[in-house]
Amino acid sequence: MKKFFAVSLAAVMTGALLAGCGSSGSSEIPVIGISQYAQHESLDNCREGFLQGLAESGLVEGEDFVVEYQNAGADDNLNVQIAQSFSAKNVALMCAIATPAATACYAAAEDKDIPVIFTAVTDPVEAKLDSGNITGTSDKLPIAAQLELIRMLQPEAKTIGIIYTSSEPNSVSAIKEYEALAGEYGFTIESVGVTQQSEVVQAADTLIAKNVDCFSNLTDNNVVDVLLSVLEKTNEAGIPVYGSEIEQVKKGCVASAGIEYVSLGVKTGQMAAKILLGEASAADMPYETITEYETYVNADAMAEFGMTLPDEVAAGAIDVSAEAAQ
């Protein structure tokens, strides 16, 4: 009985897998496989933007394309299997959100002609995603603009504290750039590397003890995920924190010169539309880095630190305090 049950279960499972590949192969409408590495507001914004970009290019979901969306929940094994399922189903295009997803999709498409389009990848060259049937958009931080913004809001500040995860490639390359550029704006950088999320709050204590004048954030997942508890500490110590994108400013950072992930996604969607329409191929399109950025401020958070917004900043800034989560 047991053996029979086990065998039949195995048979049903295998059958289901086989049926899974059969059904998508027979459909006429091209499938876009979206592989998003983790559940994360910025990455969600990328995905929404991507779909918007496709729509803006005149493609209608359900008619011109269908979407298979998968999220690995930051699990590397799952991430790989998602990419391989897209490859096995021969989707028309893979959209990879964040570097690990892009790496896995690109590997899964190795000897196939499936174009891969990525977004939210900071350094496509370092990740070897810059040649082959692949293109996309990079979310490299506008670090010079951020330093300039901090200088304008805190003319007296000398040191900037930054917490980063030493195993996140995006963070490591951002820290290097911060250190290279800080001198030009008269800052020194105090950085503390962590290996996991539980160490972030301790790192914040370390930086506060070092009397840094402000904190500046990267797009470091470990730090962003516990941002609220970092802010609790820094608010108590009277140290303002600068974010790296809009969602962080909504959570209580004073300001940010950052990219906006929905527009990043829109740009990516438009590139994908060109590929689907046959107007261009991923192999010929170079990846794009967003050069324009927005200045986001949180007027409520600034008021708490007695900071005022200089007119030249206020002119182009977007106040998100009304949308703040708290």
């Binding site: 499972m13 897998l17 999220n71």
Partner: peptide, 30 residues
């Protein structure tokens, strides 16, 4: 195979791990 099945079921992303857990339970129960 269990993981791939969970992916192929097309559940909302947040439920993926739950689906995996149920599949493992089924296999062990079997």
């Amino acid at each position: 195979i269990c993981i791939q099945l969970a992916i192929s079921m097309g559940l909302p992303a947040n439920l993926l791990k739950l689906a995996m857990a149920v599949l493992f339970l089924l296999v062990l129960a079997a």
